[in-house]
């Protein structure tokens, strides 16, 4: 049975119909067409599908889409502000923190959740924040370095 779902996606109201019981990953990609969200394992073990639901990192492949009704969802597609890249995106580029890029959307969102909550993270905070995200290419070090760089580069909230 189709059910209607409505939420905010990167600060825009969106609505779609989906089979009830659908996961958020499929609804974002197929229902809404936000292909910035990637699926890797569809079982909650790789982390690439991470999005923010009301500011909290969530594995969209194991999140019931209907549970997001009325909530605010952030994906990589909403990271940059106009022509300006998010400090995390700049830092990932400068640190060469992506190779194949498959883990990158999830890494960016997991890191954003951390920086939103903790603007001055320690290395351990960063490791904790991304430890549910698998990367096959980079050896993680460039990603950790990029997140720490982004924290330093971000304009301080006072």
């Amino acid at each position: 049975m189709k059910t209607s779902i409505q939420f905010r996606l990167n600060d825009e109201e969106v609505a779609t119909f989906a089979d009830s019981g659908s996961n958020l990953l499929d609804v974002l990609r197929e229902g809404i067409g936000d292909l910035s969200v990637k699926g890797g394992c569809w079982q909650g073990t790789c982390g690439t599908c991470t999005v923010l639901v009301d500011g909290m990192p969530r594995l969209s492949c194991v999140t019931l889409a209907e549970s997001c009704e009325g909530k605010s969802i952030e994906t990589v597609a909403g990271l940059r502000q106009g022509a300006k890249l998010h400090p995390l995106q700049t830092a990932f580029m400068e640190r060469f923190a992506a190779q194949c890029g498959y883990c990158t959307p999830g890494m960016l969102m997991a890191a954003k959740a951390l920086l939103d909550r903790e603007p001055n993270p320690t290395r351990e905070n960063v490791v904790d924040a991304i430890c549910g995200n698998i990367c096959r290419c980079t050896g993680y070090e460039p990603i950790i370095a990029a997140v720490l760089d982004a924290a330093r580069a971000a304009p301080r909230r006072s």
Binding site: C41, Q43, T45, C46, V126, V127, D128, I130, C131, I134, R136, G139, Y140, E141, I143, I144
Partner: peptide, 14 residues
């Protein structure tokens, strides 16, 4: 069959 059973070092193991 999956990443729960096929293990790799994570960011905390480097």
């Amino acid at each position: 069959r999956d990443f729960n059973e096929y293990l790799m070092p994570g960011p905390g193991d480097i």
